[in-house]
Computed example of a mutant assay.
Amino acid sequence: MRFPRLMAIFVGFSFLLTGTAHATAPDPAPGARYPIRDTALTKNKLYRSGELEASECPERELQARSVTSAKRYLTSVLTCLNASWGAHFKQAGMSFAKSRITFGTDPRRFCGFKWGKSSAAQYCGRERRFLVKLDKATLADPSDLFLFAVAAHEYGHHIQTITGMERAFDHYPYKGKRELGEQFRRYELQAECLAGVFMGSVWDSLDRTEEDWDFLLELTRYSGDEEHKASDHGKGRTIAAWLDKGFRAASPAACNTWTVPSSKVR
């Protein structure tokens, strides 16, 4: 399983090359090789918004190799995501906007950019929607939680957009490829943690077992940078750890990847 690269990040590359730092935050946690000092990232109001309230999101039937059933399944998951996060933002007194979803069996471009070969889905911040690729590989096994997790991850990027974190990330300066890679990993791992938060909040309604969750984590451990010779998402075990952390906490407070030591985002 490979969670996708965020196309909206590439939209912001010009900002990354020329951007300047925002307001200075308190000293970051010890061990941060490239400390992040923008309070929009490190002290966002989202972290103080409390736990996501438990809600219902029963899974629809998902048939193997069926694009039609996958569209219905994912549309249903998106409805849950919009409802759950919308209620959470309202309770916290935060501005909210829904995300949209589209599908493609062989997408070539999205959000103005070429589709990544290893991408199962992409989120577009400027359009506030994400596209899921419904090819044979994606639809091969309807029994696992892969598609559910893909939608929840992309919605994590949507949460970053509507809370101002995407913009802060796009504008944040860096010096060199390694620092940029770590910033990407912090961004992607936060989206993964937020996916876990949502999945934890609806878990009791999914009619799933602990073994199902463990299997998803095992799949995730094989989706990391080491499998794709990259350095922008984190190693598989790191991705799985942040997904599980969000799941266990069911709170965005667990997902502040911007202040943890560099060793937690490798």
Score class of each variant (00 low, 15 high):
59 E>C: 01
59 E>K: 15
59 E>I: 07
60 R>N: 11
61 E>T: 15
61 E>I: 08
61 E>R: 13
62 L>W: 10
62 L>C: 07
62 L>N: 08
63 Q>V: 14
63 Q>E: 15
64 A>P: 13
64 A>H: 10
64 A>Y: 12
64 A>E: 13
65 R>W: 04
66 S>C: 11
66 S>P: 07
66 S>M: 05
66 S>I: 05
66 S>W: 08
67 V>P: 02
67 V>M: 03
68 T>I: 08
68 T>A: 11
69 S>H: 08
69 S>G: 09
69 S>L: 02
70 A>T: 07
70 A>Y: 07
70 A>G: 13
70 A>M: 04
70 A>D: 10
70 A>K: 01
71 K>F: 00
72 R>N: 14
73 Y>G: 07
73 Y>I: 05
74 L>V: 05
74 L>K: 03
75 T>V: 05
75 T>Y: 05
75 T>P: 03
75 T>H: 13
76 S>E: 09
76 S>R: 13
76 S>N: 14
76 S>T: 11
77 V>R: 08
77 V>I: 12
77 V>H: 00
77 V>K: 00
78 L>P: 01
78 L>M: 14
78 L>C: 02
79 T>I: 05
79 T>D: 13
80 C>E: 06
80 C>L: 10
80 C>D: 11
81 L>Q: 11
81 L>H: 06
82 N>C: 10
82 N>R: 06
83 A>G: 06
84 S>T: 15
84 S>P: 00
85 W>E: 05
85 W>D: 04
86 G>Q: 08
86 G>V: 06
87 A>H: 10
87 A>I: 05
88 H>Y: 08
88 H>T: 05
88 H>W: 09
88 H>M: 07
89 F>A: 09
90 K>E: 15
90 K>N: 12
91 Q>C: 06
91 Q>E: 12
91 Q>H: 12
91 Q>M: 09
91 Q>K: 15
92 A>I: 04
92 A>L: 08
92 A>G: 10
93 G>S: 11
93 G>P: 12
93 G>L: 07
94 M>Y: 00
94 M>S: 04
94 M>A: 09
95 S>N: 12
95 S>V: 12
95 S>P: 04
95 S>C: 04
96 F>P: 00
96 F>S: 03
97 A>Q: 14
98 K>E: 05
98 K>Y: 00
99 S>P: 02
99 S>Y: 01
99 S>G: 07
100 R>P: 02
101 I>A: 08
101 I>L: 15
101 I>N: 02
101 I>G: 01
102 T>F: 00
102 T>W: 03
102 T>I: 12
102 T>M: 03
103 F>P: 07
103 F>D: 02
105 T>E: 14
106 D>V: 01
106 D>P: 00
106 D>S: 15
106 D>F: 01
